[in-house]
Design a protein around this nucleic acid. Structure first.
Lengths: 132, 132
DNA sequence: AACGTTATGTAATAATATAACATTTATAAG
DNA sequence: CTTATAAATGTTATATTATTACATAACGTT
């Protein structure tokens, strides 16, 4: 059962924007888009982003410094994320593949480390861009 | 057989520094460290870093905006990278696990994308930090 | 109501990265 | 060896991404 997180005002404004856009958004582009709603400073954006990442409503695409809404309803926390990224059109989508996530969540090597989290980014050309 | 890349002067200075440090280094820390060698501007550092990443001599740890020397002698190009990162002491090491790299290099889903590259970052606590 | 926690507002600044342009050095082809 | 081309360098300025510090307000318990 999913814990209901009551988003605060700023968190809600920023989540809704990212969610509606459907694609990765950068912090300052978010800022620009929410200024009419009274959010004026970068820090207000970053604080909301931090919280939204923490509770798994959005994920950060590390290689792009951008944030995308979680596309996986069962994903409560950002502790096991995988994305496919088109290097031409920059389309990003979240990969939900249970085999992959099982494989990675159970992965261990001889370092003695127990991994509690991972982030994976695949790069390539999407269907559209390949056929150009 | 490995293609020999003749590093240029700046590339060599910067690679040697990162390689000797044995840990991830940030661009401006690199800059600070090579100023005595005549490298004065961020761009000189970033250009060398770009090239070194391109030829696989170093990798970028995306979640940390830092660069580490490749620890895997067979790694010619940065197209299949995996790291373990301790969230407490920030120790980073490159994972060379042939099963893992095979699994990920061959991974495909139903998106129609053919992935040519990936980057994976595992997070957790290293042995030392766990026992504290 | 009193307390602790979470969120907000605001200004300043730090840290990371790139654009634009001029020049020099290395590589390769004739 | 010299011309052409690509790769690397030098330099200044600026863009982009992110955090520190401090003050105030709202929320959730008990």
């Amino acid at each position: 059962m999913q814990k209901e997180h009551n988003l605060s005002k700023n968190q809600k404004i920023i989540f809704d924007l990212i969610d509606k856009s459907g694609e990765p958004m950068k912090a300052y582009s978010i800022l620009f888009n929410v200024q009419k709603k009274g959010i004026k400073a970068p820090l207000q954006v970053y604080r909301a982003l931090d919280k939204l990442v923490e509770i798994g409503k959005i994920h950060k695409i590390e290689s792009r410094n951008a944030f995308i809404a979680c596309q996986n309803s069962s994903c409560q926390v950002s502790k096991a994320t995988a994305f496919s990224i088109c290097e031409s059109c920059e389309n990003v989508s979240e990969i939900s593949n249970s085999k992959l996530s099982k494989y990675l969540s159970n992965f261990s090597d001889d370092s003695g480390m127990k991994y509690s989290k991972y982030n994976l980014e695949f790069f390539g050309l999407c269907k559209k861009c390949k056929s150009k």
